[in-house]
């Protein structure tokens, strides 16, 4: 199947109403605001832990801030640990070729690609090939 005729869609007026509601994601000031709200939420949740008595089953679970610390530290360690793991196990996309689908394109026969034209430069197309 071939791509449908392209039509320019970077005119924001052409986005559907649902998509327009998310346009803030492209504005750095709005993202800052969201992060601010998240920080406020976290602070409130942390303070609540000192006010509300949580029912605790496991040793240590009842310490105020337990879940906050575990959430932050676990997430950070997982991401940083995964990053180290990648240094060891990342290989080129063609590593298992031709016996794996990693390096092949999905066959067009099973797709219905429809792409609107975009004015944004496709600059990041190929990143570093792993190896």
């Amino acid at each position: 199947m071939t791509d449908k005729p392209a039509k320019p869609i970077d005119d924001k007026q052409e986005y559907t109403p649902l998509a327009k509601r998310f346009l803030w994601a492209d504005s750095s000031s709005a993202v800052e605001r969201v992060i601010f709200y998240l920080s406020v939420t976290c602070t409130v949740l942390f303070v609540l832990d000192f006010i509300i008595h949580r029912h605790a089953y496991a040793p240590g679970e009842g310490i105020p801030g337990f879940y906050a610390v575990v959430g932050f530290v676990a997430f950070t360690l997982i991401v940083l640990g995964a990053k180290q793991l990648r240094r060891v196990i990342l290989r080129n996309e063609h590593y298992y070729s031709p016996f794996s689908v990693d390096a092949e394109n999905y066959p067009d026969a099973g797709l219905d690609k429809q792409q609107y034209q975009s004015s944004v430069d496709d600059t990041h197309d190929v990143k570093r090939e792993g190896g």
Binding site: L38, C42, L48, A68
Partner: peptide, 18 residues
């Protein structure tokens, strides 16, 4: 609800930090 929201929100905060 409080413990789960703490876990998830602080994990989100960690994502922002990273």
């Amino acid at each position: 609800v409080l413990s789960q929201m703490q876990l998830l929100c602080f994990a989100l905060l960690a994502f922002v930090f990273l």
